[in-house]
Design a protein around this nucleic acid. Structure first.
Length: 573
RNA sequence: CGGGGCGUAGCGCAGCUCGGAAGCGCACCUGCUUUGGGAGCAGGGGGUCGCUGGUUCAAAUCCAGUCGCCCCGACCA
């Protein structure tokens, strides 16, 4: 393997912070010459970025192969007709980029490949003897996201590892799913990332289980909940928390009180001198053409994902004032008592509380001592509240923490949604045709690369984990204009490359200072400095990026090679 | 899609309030001197001020529209 000469490579670095970037990973990718933007959420990978991406891909490939995955490559362009069959031409909506080919056929760019892979399975899988099967690819996806952000954290065109498994029944999917789960943990760990697997909302997909792999990061765009005690973790949409019931109080008689100008829970609670947890909050939504009246304890917020699941509705949006008035409720003073013309969803926090303050359905008035069951009824009682930081864990009673994170992977028990829609069946052991049971598993490769940088950088630049570093060692010649040091550095680079290392030789005619700064910016694990000072003493300096530790070693090719390899081994352990 | 910000040389920015010769730093090119932590001197090249229209004797600057990018939110199979 040959080494790369920087002077003939394409590796532009920036001294200044780019104005367009906020996230550390985004700034570093631009400054260290990994990526360049073309349009919103669409990037070119420069040679160095592409190298790093391929390192990540190689790890993903190894781990997928290790759990029996067979790599294939499906098309980017799909006939829209296939998407119409599963209903996702409409459901995937605006993220699907659509166009016509010259014959006027409707086409889409694939945002994911359930349709295509299921179509393939329909044609090729006939018998239970062909199962189970895991197919995966590492391929370009396009999703016309409403908003890209954070460099490679959320883009429109991206590289994704998407895998799809096929099983004869749910039991076999249940058996295989944990293997993928473990493979995912290994992939992220090998990339130097400690991820948190969180239970994800299986939502409208109707599956039986789903996990997201989150990297905790203040710059993450997702929110998840983690228990300090038992390790329970779930994404915000699905997280459950204990709600202390307080049913000891005796029921008191309802009493109307004047609360002029108190249109928020905080104002009411303050005016009446009660904690917000002793109030009932009314929140209105419109779903599937009807108005929904949701009642939660005043100190809680409605979790719209949970509510949508309870209602079985996909199109949840806040109700208008007119919607609210149509139910007979008075905005700001809404009461669940005597409401008609709306479905009433009561959070279980309300069912577990006594003598609450609620609206009186009369401008400027509230009611004291309102009790669920006695004073009002519900269409549904369910958990529709958002878990909060500091809440108690339902499982162990420990403390729940709300954290931000970057979602690196998502695995999903799909069931038969796609196989049924596309009639992908096989003959089981009894000779009956049954739909294939499927799982799907995704990792955003570029996002994973961005996450590596979020987790591995310092003030001066990137600090690559050895496993995904675009090069293992950077050989810097401080005076490349002089023939002997350059020739010597080239022989060092050559020797290191022969030893199986990825070597970048900085033979640019730049000042020593620039080379040292760029070396830190690039973050290659080991820097070998070849300069006149060291050479006079018969030494080459090795510098470890992680902690800046410098070791002079004898300037002999074999000594340098072993020393570099020792340092790299120490890196990866 | 709602809110906010920004478009002036490759990058970072000033100039715009109050219209009157397009600037600064870095980078780049040439030469010389430097060469172990972003060197010095001298010389030089590079800009339809995002775009369109309007006001004006005169527009980077004022007005209208439009496009693009970034951030917050909504959304996120």
């Amino acid at each position: 393997m040959a080494y790369v000469r920087w002077s003939r490579y394409f590796l532009p670095t920036w001294k200044e912070e780019p104005a367009e970037a906020d996230l550390p990973s985004h700034k570093l990718m631009l400054r260290a010459g990994l990526i360049r933007p073309l349009a919103a959420g669409i990037y070119t990978y420069l040679p160095l970025g592409w190298r790093a991406l391929r390192k990540v891909e190689a790890i993903v490939r190894e781990e997928m192969d290790a759990i029996g995955g067979a790599e294939l490559h499906m098309p980017v362009v799909h006939p829209a007709e296939l998407w119409a069959k599963t209903g996702r031409l409409v459901d995937a909506g605006e993220i699907l980029i659509r166009f016509q080919d010259r014959a006027g056929r409707e086409m889409v760019l694939g945002p994911t490949h359930e349709e295509v892979v299921t179509d393939l399975a329909r044609r090729e899988i006939q018998s239970w003897r062909q199962l189970p099967l895991m197919l995966y690819q590492i391929q370009t996806k396009f999703r016309d996201e409403p908003r890209s952000r954070g460099g490679l954290v959320r883009v429109r065109e991206f590289t994704m590892k998407d895998g799809y498994s096929f099983h004869e029944d749910l039991a076999d999917l249940d058996r295989y799913y944990p293997e993928v789960y473990q493979a995912y943990l290994r992939i992220f760990r090998r990339c130097g990332l400690a991820t948190v697997p969180v239970e994800a909302d299986s939502g409208m997909m109707g599956g039986t289980g789903s996990h997201e792999f989150m990297l905790a990061s203040e710059h993450g765009e997702d929110t998840f909940v983690r228990c300090e005690g038992c390790g329970y973790a779930a994404n915000r949409e699905g997280a459950v928390a204990a709600k202390d019931a307080d049913l000891d109080e005796a029921l008191r008689a309802v009493e109307e009180v004047a609360t002029p100008g108190c249109e928020t829970i905080e104002a009411v609670a303050r005016a009446l001198g009660v904690p917000t947890s002793k109030t009932a909050k009314a929140v209105f939504y419109r779903a599937a053409g009807e108005v929904v009246f949701v009642v939660v304890r005043g100190d809680l917020e409605v979790n719209e994902a949970k509510l949508a699941r309870v209602l079985g509705a996909g199109d949840l949006r806040p109700a208008t004032e007119d919607d609210i008035r149509a139910t007979g409720a008075v905005p700001g003073y809404a009461s669940p008592i005597g409401v008609t013309g709306a479905r009433v969803v009561v959070d279980d926090s309300i069912a577990g509380a006594r003598n609450l303050v609620a609206g009186a359905n009369r401008e400027g008035f509230h009611l004291r001592n309102v009790n669920f069951g006695r004073d009002f009824q519900a269409s549904v009682v369910a958990d529709v509240a958002l878990a909060r930081d500091g809440d108690r864990c339902l499982r162990c009673g420990g403390t729940l923490r709300v954290e931000r994170g970057i979602e690196l992977g998502h695995i999903f028990k799909l069931g038969t949604k796609y196989s049924q829609a596309l009639e992908a069946t096989f003959l089981d052991r009894e000779g009956r045709a049954r739909p294939l049971v499927m799982g799907c598993y995704g990792i955003g490769i570029g996002r994973l690369l961005a996450a590596v940088l979020e987790a591995h950088h310092d003030r001066d630049g990137i600090v690559w984990p050895g496993s995904v570093a675009p090069f293992h060692v950077l050989v810097a010649v401080l005076n490349p204009k002089e023939p002997e040091p350059l020739a010597y550095a080239a022989s060092v680079a050559e020797h290191l490359a022969q030893a199986g290392l990825d070597v970048l030789l900085d033979d640019r005619e730049r000042t020593a200072g620039e080379k040292f700064h760029d070396a830190k910016l690039l973050g290659i694990p080991v820097l070998a400095v070849i300069g006149p000072r060291g050479l006079r003493k018969g030494e080459v300096d090795l510098e470890r990026r992680r902690d800046g530790a410098r070791t002079p070693v004898r300037a002999s090719l074999d000594v340098i090679a072993t020393s570099v390899q020792d340092m790299l081994r120490a890196e990866s352990s």
